[in-house]
């Protein structure tokens, strides 16, 4: 313990100057701007005892909003997996004409500020919009329903899947597939055993990143979602509603649940990913 403290203060093994300055700045920076506010979030609900926390747990509107957020994020991330895989494949292996432009387009949802994507998607998918009108003719209403939430989350989540799969796909040698084919593997065997197996870990990571982003997403969703309690109200919006009612305890309770579940989901995906990467490395 004492040795660890000494190592922490002296800078471990390196003789480079500047350790203590960098350490103090980093600790102050992360301490004041991350640890302190998060402590407030964790401590605040228990400040008045266990009673208020238990009372919040009876709030069915909160559970409905959390369910909407997690369900929509999961569906959107799941739908993004095949689309993202297809786009990454075409970018890396497809000899796509205009490849460089296509590659830049992938970053668009990432570059567009969320409020801008929000009002734009709402306009695009509204019953009078360019995409909403033909969809409405077919009897599908997207805007102001849960589908609207899913569409918005698919838009913001797509780059995460493409950008995590792409580098792995690039590093995957062509020769492996040819060797498998020469050794007598059937096309579907080549795809599932040789191509998809090493892509599974990045696909899981991409899914996880898109999911984590989707659960907390606010700006790009609220304009296109109907925001009806119990139907199309997402958890972050309910936090805002509670704050407008000056119900800090209610808002903090939802925020804490949101934070804990999304961190747990990220950790779970990390475990899953490690298991599958071991599986993918097997001959």
């Amino acid at each position: 313990m004492k040795r660890a403290c000494v190592a922490f203060w002296r800078g471990g093994d390196s003789a480079l100057p500047g350790y203590r300055l960098a350490l103090v700045v980093t600790l102050l920076w992360t301490g004041l701007f991350i640890a302190l506010p998060l402590c407030a979030l964790i401590i605040r609900p228990w400040q008045d005892g266990v009673g208020p926390v238990l009372a919040e747990l009876h709030d069915t509107r909160m559970f409905a909003a959390l369910w909407t957020s997690f369900f929509s994020a999961a569906v959107a991330a799941l739908l993004n997996v095949p689309i993202g895989l297809f786009l990454a494949w075409m970018l890396v292996r497809g000899n796509l004409p205009g490849q460089r432009i296509a590659d830049a387009l992938i970053d668009l949802p990432f570059a567009l500020p969320t409020a801008v994507s929000g009002i734009t998607l709402a306009t695009l998918y509204s019953p009078q919009g360019w995409l909403g009108y033909p969809l409405a003719k077919m009897g599908v209403s997207v805007a102001y329903t849960q589908w609207g939430i899913i569409i918005a989350l698919m838009f913001v989540g797509l780059p995460f899947v493409v950008r995590t799969v792409e580098p792995v796909l690039k590093a995957l040698p062509h020769e492996q597939e040819e060797a498998a084919r020469l050794l007598g593997a059937k096309p579907w065997q080549v795809i599932t055993r040789v191509v998809l197996a090493p892509l599974l870990p990045p696909l899981i990571t991409g899914f996880g990143l898109a999911f984590a982003r989707g659960v907390g997403e606010y700006g790009s969703v609220i304009f296109i979602a109907g925001n009806q309690p119990f139907k199309s109200e997402i958890a972050p919006l309910l936090i805002v509603v509670r704050l407008q009612e000056f119900d800090y305890d209610g808002a903090t309770a939802i925020a804490l649940v949101l934070l804990v579940i999304s961190l747990a989901a990220l950790a779970g995906i990390g475990v899953l990913r490690r298991r599958f990467s071991a599986w993918g490395a097997m001959p």
């Binding site: 506010p37 407030a40 984590a212 936090i239 925020a255 949101l258 934070l259 961190l263």
Partner: peptide, 11 residues
């Protein structure tokens, strides 16, 4: 990995 709304709320 924290929702933007929560990032505002903590302050």
């Amino acid at each position: 990995s924290i929702s933007p709304v929560v990032s505002g709320l903590v302050w």
